[in-house]
């Protein structure tokens, strides 16, 4: 049965973990943003075999469960010959989630770059810009801003995957809620608190992203000649 006393008792205990939960979200997101670029490079080398190889590696990471990847890095990585080492739970979860989400982020980057008009490349060539200038001054400044809402969406999705780290002992809010539950045999209230905290953090962010999406759509909409038909 629901008890407000337990709720009030559990709340300060569970909220202790919010720093870890948010910290893991931010660090793995930064990793995903950086690694997303690496995939892009690995998949557009001059060699088609290498591109094909990394495309399927990325597809592999993308379509297998992040939970297994977390277990792999935490439990099995130390046993890998030559490169194996022991990670703390936090680092293992950060690497696993960061790499898992980088496979999505790289897709977002790609869609942004592909949406840049072909004429921009041709004009850069005609102006004799170097490859670096073409990318840094012409293509990326146009490609990246429209992807911001999508990148924001992935931040929210990543945030919701972070409690998976509780399974290897990262002491975030979910982990603390389960500890509280196993100590007192009251699971209902602490887990409800976790759900409420997630909702409180992710729902306003989702609304913000939707608003941003609308603004971006208005701003970056391909200017079409709109014919107004008078009614």
């Amino acid at each position: 049965m629901w008890s407000w006393e337990t709720f009030i008792d559990a709340f300060p205990f569970v909220i202790e973990g919010i720093n870890i939960t948010l910290g893991l979200t931010v660090t793995s997101y930064l990793l995903a943003l950086a690694a997303g670029f690496i995939w892009l490079v690995l998949e557009s080398t001059p060699s088609r075999i290498i591109n094909f190889f990394f495309h399927w590696i990325r597809e592999f990471i993308r379509s297998t469960p992040p939970l297994v990847q977390i277990f792999f890095l935490y439990f099995a990585w130390p046993e890998v010959p030559y490169v194996g080492m022991t990670f703390t739970p936090f680092i293992a979860a950060m690497l696993a989630l960061g790499i898992h989400f980088s496979t999505y982020i790289s897709e977002v980057y790609r869609s942004g770059i592909e949406s840049v008009d072909q004429g921009q490349w041709e004009a850069s060539k005609a102006l004799n810009l170097s490859t670096k200038d073409t990318w840094m001054r012409i293509v990326l400044p146009q490609a990246l801003p429209p992807t911001i809402p999508m990148l924001g969406n992935y931040l929210i999705i990543l945030f919701k995957e972070v409690p998976l780290a509780a399974t290897i002992g990262v002491v975030g809010i979910l982990s603390l809620a389960r500890t509280y539950g196993s100590n007192t045999w009251a699971y209902l209230e602490p887990i409800t608190i976790v759900a409420i905290l997630f909702l409180l953090l992710s729902y306003p962010s989702a609304l913000l992203i939707r608003w941003l999406e609308k603004k971006m759509n208005n701003r970056f909409e391909k200017k079409e000649t709109k014919v107004k038909v008078s009614k």
């Binding site: 919701k160 409690p163 509780a166 979910l174 539950g181 887990i191 759900a195 997630f198 909702l199 992710s202």
Partner: peptide, 14 residues
């Protein structure tokens, strides 16, 4: 707005 693992535990425990 909440994650699958939280919902799973919620259904399982709560």
């Amino acid at each position: 707005g909440t994650s699958l693992i939280v919902q799973l535990f919620w259904l399982y425990y709560a």
